[in-house]
Amino acid sequence: MTILRKTLGEKYVMKKLLAFLTAAAMLSAVLADSAAAAASIKRVSKPQIQVLLDGKKMSFADAKPFSDSSKRVLVPIRFVSEALGAKVDWNSAKSTVNISMNKKEVTLVLGQSSAKVNGVTMKFDTQAVSSHSRIFVPLRFVSEALGQTVNWDSQGSWVWIGKQEVPKIEDVSELKDLGEYKKYFSGDYGRSLISYGKDSKFKSIRIISAAQLPVKILDHTIYDIWTVSDGDNIGLQIRYKGPDLDMFFISSKFEPKQRSGYIKKISEGFKIATYELKHPGDGLFHGDNNWRTLSLKSIDYFCFRSYIGEDSVHLLFNPFK
């Protein structure tokens, strides 16, 4: 009996080990293919021009910034008055815009590639225009003329005005009780996401939207998120700074799904992490026989873990639902 049990036990262990090694080999092949495919995938939609003032993304309700034929960013004149705090006067009879702030005065004429700054004529390579019943002015020229620092982020199509300090998640989100969100954290992964240490569990949660990016979450700074495709499959990419970044798909319909990104370093400390939406690991290791049917819209949140120094669970609302 002892020998039989030992033999059966050894066979069982060998069977499980063989299954694990087979699954690991399959997964390694998938990951290798993923790394090769990451170079060929394309962004689903073109990046939209974003304007950030002192590290916070600005919203444009009725008229969006755009890039003209000279690749200069133009913004609605209302932004200059409301965001920068300048006084703006529009003279429809003369088609002129007068902008004043902090003892600086800028006068532009629609359709002309020159302006007066404190009475001195200055030329630039674009012009103020009228579009869709809105007056648009060149952002860099006007901002710098008013004493602001302007930087162009070509990777994200972002214009940074003023300080480039990214806010912490604590500064842009409300601390909520975790209790009403526990339905999102079922299974082993779910329990691990709301736990830290041996027997301790988080009691609170912070949720942000993509409109609040960029944001600093402990040792990670997350700048942007977008969808990509290789022609057949949909994936996600995140532009960020910091250590390698694991992401979890969170939904009330299924247990959290972990994704390790394929990381590509770009420039100035930035990284691009690519994540597969559908992954065979969900079936191989977690028994999810429906992993091929996972859709982006079925995900409610994306979860990021830094594991060190956290005071709460951090979620990003899925902007692609």
Rank of each mutant, 00 (worst) to 15 (best):
I169A: 09
K183H: 12
L52C: 06
K46T: 10
K264P: 05
S260G: 04
Y181T: 05
A36R: 14
V117D: 03
P280K: 05
G179D: 15
E170Y: 08
N91K: 07
S130L: 14
A273F: 01
K123M: 12
E82A: 10
K201Q: 15
V166S: 10
I272K: 06
I308Y: 13
L294T: 08
F254E: 02
A86F: 03
E180H: 11
N289I: 14
S267K: 14
T221Y: 12
S45K: 15
T107K: 14
L146Q: 02
S267T: 09
E255D: 13
A25V: 12
A37W: 05
R259M: 01
L139I: 10
D288W: 06
A211V: 11
R292Y: 07
F79W: 09
L21G: 03
M14T: 10
V228W: 02
L277E: 03
Y189Q: 12
D54H: 13
Q164M: 11
F320N: 02
L52R: 06
K257S: 01
D188H: 11
N290M: 11
T293L: 14
F66I: 13
S69F: 11
S295G: 15
A83L: 07
L236K: 04
S252A: 09
K16S: 11
D230G: 05
K87I: 13
Y275R: 00
K257V: 04
K116N: 09
A25H: 07
